[in-house]
Design a protein around this nucleic acid. Structure first.
Length: 738
DNA sequence: CTGTCGTTTATTTTT
DNA sequence: TAAACGACAG
């Protein structure tokens, strides 16, 4: 095999095939390359692809690895187990689930489903008051589960908690109820996929040794993100042959709040005695000036497995920091930067705007629309989380597993078929007393409901039974089309507030059906289809048009762009106030900035603002902001700072803002609606109607297609010649009726 | 049972 | 600010 292009460190890691190996791979240091070559090397040495297990966190990483290994070793790659922790566990559970007391056909409740279940449990309990936030309870339960605790453990531990901590009392109660319901519904949540696999392995030693024996070589990507449960799983499996190869970067550990335990990477050498360690410090992504800044930022974290990134790339521009007056000016400034980059010949696909919180995206998106720069939000709601997708899938799940009460409650009155909450509650109560699933209780509707409601329920039941009868004879495509039509879902989406929304929803469902048909052609059954999509969070969709990418720093991990703009580099946002209470919290925030910086290949731009609207006692107030401490603590020669006059003045008056640098010829962005978008004071008479012809200084002529909202919030969907349909605020957009 | 209106609440989210 | 939720009247 050719190892061209691997540097010495990479090569040593690749060739170290026996025992335990830790590869500390800095950002952009070619870790995927090392992983793929390592697998190819194993196969070259005669290891059966069947004996290799590669674990990742994301589907994307798994697919990328699969593809790249395929390029090296061809079809042998198909027999390697490469997948996310969750998908590998799912595969194992599918073959062994009855050994731990679940039934075949179990369903997986996603995060939204879990939350819905927790809400229902709370509502039916004595904790039905405003004092318990279901999200907090969900977080508590998930954290406990990921630390390896059962509901019983939690209850026992609860005695150690401060008895005043009402939330723990509530959680202890909900936790037990939650686990019991999952079992009754023959359902697992995401966390369970891993936990139940561990349970299976500890209960059934034969199964464990079968897998231990099979997986002679185990590889783990992003090891710094493993939590306690994942760590135990890896340890269990690797205990057979002890060939464990992990790749990670402690400096990119940004999921601590989700249970990721950075100690796992620090303890690797203790956990696996005799482990070899390789450091990859040569960066192939960014030029040295970007790396100098990233190195300086991350240096302030303690306890690191210290790495210093370096690059051979030709030196490029120094990173820039632009300071604006407020968030609105910042957003418009970001749009201007994008325009400038475009004018310089940059492809919009090679520009990313990244930020700490999703809330920041709103203003930025608006400003980009104003500047006619197309954008795509990469951390928006993913395909499979959309309501319309979850609705139709819930119908399909019910056909496979009638125990899934949660899905039954989701669909029984969606679309509306006059089966209200009271009727559903009565059915649930009846099912409970008769020890039936809710679905099984439906035929007895007449026993517990008034005639009209009972009829509605029985009609629903008859329809579902009909689907169940047909599910094996119809093609997946026809079955789903039938469900979509017969249930009235299509009709329901058609009634959406705007045509665009209706169309969007229906298109999404049609895309899902198309995808199902493709999968069926590849041999998947309905059950296979449901399992296979249950862990996918987004669907491969045809490459979008040329557009600037918007995303959070968390979703930016693993990606790279020629031009990166990091927005909101101010204290309070980054580091975020909520995480600033502890040293560990601040250090994780610092890693976020580090991740952001190291995404940039050619140009790195950061933006900040001098003041912003914050909430205080429910009221909004302008508060001064200062540039992120993470930048203030590094040498200011590492980046160029440019401040608008207004921002400099505000900082000077407040006595913050360092070495008040003068306004340095930084082009102040000007936009037609420089209006303060948040408070459209100027009452404009809004009298548009669908069909009106309008004129816009940038977009030219257009026709109003749709109107939503009222008063100042009226939004027009206007089809512009050559620009497509744009959504604009009637009150503030510079448009005229013609 | 359903639509409307006030109330509440607000990080990050690989699966 | 806005979006999502729950109480309440029709």
């Amino acid at each position: 095999m050719e190892y061209n292009g691997l540097n010495n460190q990479q090569l040593s890691a690749v060739k170290h095939t026996k025992g335990a190996v830790l590869v500390l791979a800095g950002a952009g240091s070619g870790k995927t390359r090392v992983l793929t070559y390592r697998v190819a090397k194993l196969i070259e040495e005669g290891v059966g692809p069947y004996n290799i297990l590669a674990l990742t966190f994301t589907n994307k990483a798994a697919n990328e690895m699969k593809e790249r290994i395929h390029q090296l070793v061809g079809s042998q790659a198909d027999n390697i187990w490469i997948g996310t922790f969750h998908s590998v566990c799912l595969k194992i559970l599918m073959m062994n689930i009855e050994k731990i007391g679940f039934k075949p056909g179990f369903v997986i409740y996603d995060a939204d489903d879990s939350l819905a279940l927790i809400k229902r449990i709370l509502k039916d309990s004595r904790y039905d008051n405003n004092e318990v936030n279901p999200r907090t309870v969900k977080y508590e339960i998930s954290a406990a589960k990921n630390d390896g605790y059962t509901a019983d453990d939690y209850l026992t531990q609860f005695n150690d908690f401060d008895p005043d901590e009402y939330i723990h009392e509530a959680t202890a109660f909900v936790f037990e109820e939650y686990e019991r319901t999952l079992k009754e519904n023959n359902a697992l949540d995401f966390d369970d996929l891993l936990i139940k696999t561990i349970l299976l392995f500890s209960k059934d030693r034969d199964t464990l040794s079968r897998y231990q024996d099979r997986f002679k070589y185990i590889l783990v990507d992003e090891y710094q993100d493993t939590n306690e449960v994942q760590y135990r799983l890896v340890k269990m499996l690797a205990d057979g042959h002890k060939n464990i190869f992990v790749v990670g970067d402690d400096d990119q550990s940004i999921y601590g709040w989700r249970g990721a335990n950075i100690e796992n990477i620090y303890n690797f050498e203790k956990d696996f005695p005799g482990a070899a360690v390789y450091k990859l410090e040569q960066n192939y992504r960014s030029h040295q000036k970007i790396l100098d800044l990233s190195n300086a930022v991350i240096k302030n974290n303690s306890g690191r497995k210290s790495k210093v990134l370096f690059s051979d790339a030709a030196v490029g521009d120094k990173p820039k920091l632009f300071v604006f007056e407020d968030e609105y000016a910042e957003s418009r400034g970001i749009a201007t930067l994008c325009v400038n980059l475009q004018e310089r010949g940059e492809n919009l696909n090679d520009i990313a705007v990244i930020y700490r919180t999703n809330a920041q995206s709103r203003l930025i998106e608006q400003a980009l629309v104003e500047a006619s720069i197309p954008s795509k939000n990469l951390s928006g709601r993913s395909f499979y989380e959309r309501k319309e997708i979850k609705d139709i899938l819930a119908y399909l799940y019910m056909m496979v597993n009638t125990d899934a009460d949660l899905y039954l409650t989701r669909i029984i009155n969606t679309p509306k078929r006059k089966i209200g909450d009271t009727s559903v509650a009565k059915i649930a109560a009846y099912a409970e007393t008769k020890r039936l699933s809710m679905y099984e209780a439906l035929p007895y509707a007449e026993a517990v409901l008034p005639a009209a409601a009972a009829k509605a329920v029985l009609d629903f039941y008859t329809m579902m039974e009909d689907f169940r009868l047909k599910k094996d004879s119809l093609s997946l495509n026809d079955l789903m089309a039938l469900v979509f039509e017969k249930t009235g879902l299509r009709e329901m989406y058609l009634q959406a507030p705007t045509m665009a929304e209706a169309q969007g929803r229906i298109e999404n469902v049609e895309e899902l059906i198309k995808n199902a048909a493709e999968r069926e052609a590849r041999g998947e059954t309905l059950e296979d289809f449901l399992y296979n999509i249950s862990l996918i969070t987004d669907m491969e969709r045809e490459a979008a048009d040329e557009a600037v990418s918007l995303m959070t720093m968390h979703s930016a991990k693993g990606l790279e762009y020629g031009n990166v703009i990091i927005a909101g580099v101010v204290d309070g946002v980054l580091p975020h106030t909520f995480s600033s209470g502890t040293k560990a919290g601040i250090e994780e925030e610092r890693r976020l900035l580090y991740v952001g910086i190291t995404r940039a290949k050619k140009r790195l731009m950061m933006t900040a603002f001098a003041s912003r609207a914050t909430r205080q006692n429910g009221f909004f107030q302008q508060t001064l902001s200062s540039i992120s401490s993470f930048l203030k603590e590094v040498d200011e020669s590492l980046y160029d700072k440019q401040e608008t006059h207004a921002a400099a003045r505000m900082h000077a008056e407040a006595g913050i803002g360092s070495s008040a640098s003068p306004f340095a010829g930084f082009e102040k962005p000007s936009f037609s609606s420089g209006a303060n978008i948040a408070s459209p004071k100027n009452k404009v008479s809004i009298d548009f109607a669908a069909g009106d012809r309008v004129q816009h200084p940038k977009f030219g002529f257009g026709v109003v297609k749709d109107i939503s909202g009222t008063g100042d919030q009226t939004v027009l969907s206007v089809a512009f010649e050559g620009y497509g349909v744009k959504k604009i605020f009637a009150a503030i957009a510079p448009i005229e009726k013609i």
